[in-house]
Design a protein around this nucleic acid. Structure first.
Lengths: 217, 217
DNA sequence: ACTATAATTTAGACTAATCTAAAAAAATAT
DNA sequence: ATATTTTTTTAGATTAGTCTAAATTATAGT
């Protein structure tokens, strides 16, 4: 049985491992978990002893098959709980992350299976992130960042990269939600801002915002 | 913010304090939590420093108003989650306790309010125990132990004292469930066993079983 | 290739929660 | 009332997770 801290470290490695680099650095994990590199080193040794990560001093770390399975299961739980909170308990998508961070550590396989069924086996969470199945597999939509879409074309907003409160509140304030159809009207090369059109209105979004919006065409 | 262990100690004192004695003994808490008396003593000092219990060496302990409120809130969460598991996720009543032991420590006031509303503000959990409201108040049904009921009278089974797996499985096996009407046919003074009649059948229950069944007349 | 900088690990300390064994206090029995 | 037993507390040790500061290794710049 793993502790919450062990689970959080595996999850961090899982998330960081997705982006290119074969091995994940100690510092990256420390930053993700808001802790110190020395604490991470200690934990990596422990996880290595348990056969959940491949770790070589100074060389970074990555998940073993066993570790990857555990990590994807935590992500699965996190995202299922987020769906529950939004769909059943009327939370808005900017309120659920912290609570799901707690709920993801509840231990009961039956619980998560029943929850999955109760929610009618959702494939994506409220932020558009795919929910892994029991084996860690997930449907990955073909998405494009809005910055890569040609002016004049339309797409459907299906996921956001940044799931922070502040960013989601910005989207709420500007009436942008998953599932909305967005048309790219104009691209301004000077600052990479984009003019977009939604059902609601026409607006300009900054590069910083645009980087976090992913659409299907 | 309290740790899980602190919360568990408060909850144990809350439950033990219900039965007569003004103050709860160190040993009783230790037994309830399956830990050692010395560990309990340490924790009592800590809880006392935080103003959650009144503790005097060798004199036992009881909850302060602040402590009582926190404890009843944990019990509230535990019982609401049990309702959720049974009503929404199709668990049977003998499977929910352990999971609720974990869920009761999730910290979010909004979560528990929304859950309460989603479940339509239940007043009792699947074992018939009353669910405290936000202020710790609960409706206490006028119940009688089946041993105190005169032969020939009927009652409705509304709660069970022992919530262990084994006992609940015994009830399931014998088709006894909350809400069932039970008629007391005969009382055997020799061993305090009772002959009862349900929709299903007539059966004899031992004193040990009878002690755990509470009815409304 | 050498040096400065950055990343990582090690060493040692701290806190929280637990335990065992011994000491102290309270309860009970004669 | 005293002795025995039980309960409770204290003292000291252990484990997990964390930290800071120092040492080590890797990386980058010239």
């Amino acid at each position: 049985m793993l502790t919450q801290s062990e689970e959080n470290h595996l999850k961090a490695i899982y998330h960081l491992g997705k982006f290119g680099s074969v091995s994940v650095s100690t510092n990256a994990i420390a930053e993700q978990l808001d802790t110190k590199a020395s604490s991470v080193t200690d934990m990596l040794k422990k996880l290595s002893d348990k056969g959940l990560v491949n770790y070589r001093k100074y060389q970074g770390v990555n998940l073993t098959e066993k570790g990857r399975k555990i990590a994807s299961n935590i992500v699965r739980k996190h995202r299922l709980w987020e769906v529950f909170l939004v769909e059943k308990l009327n939370f808005s998508w900017d309120e659920v992350h912290e609570i799901a961070e707690q709920l993801e550590h509840i231990k009961s396989e039956k619980l998560i299976n029943q929850l999955d069924a109760f929610l009618e086996k959702p494939t994506h969470d409220p932020h558009g992130d795919p929910i892994p199945d029991k084996n860690g597999k997930m449907v990955q939509l073909e998405t494009q960042n809005i910055l890569e879409i040609k002016a004049g074309r339309k797409g459907v907003l299906v996921s956001v990269k940044d799931s922070s409160d502040e960013f989601l509140k910005y989207l709420n304030k500007n009436k942008l939600a998953l599932g909305d159809t967005i048309k790219v009207l104009d691209f301004e090369p000077f600052d990479s801002s984009i003019t977009i059109e939604t059902k609601e209105k026409t607006m300009i979004i900054s590069k910083m915002v645009a980087e976090n919006l992913f659409l299907t065409l």
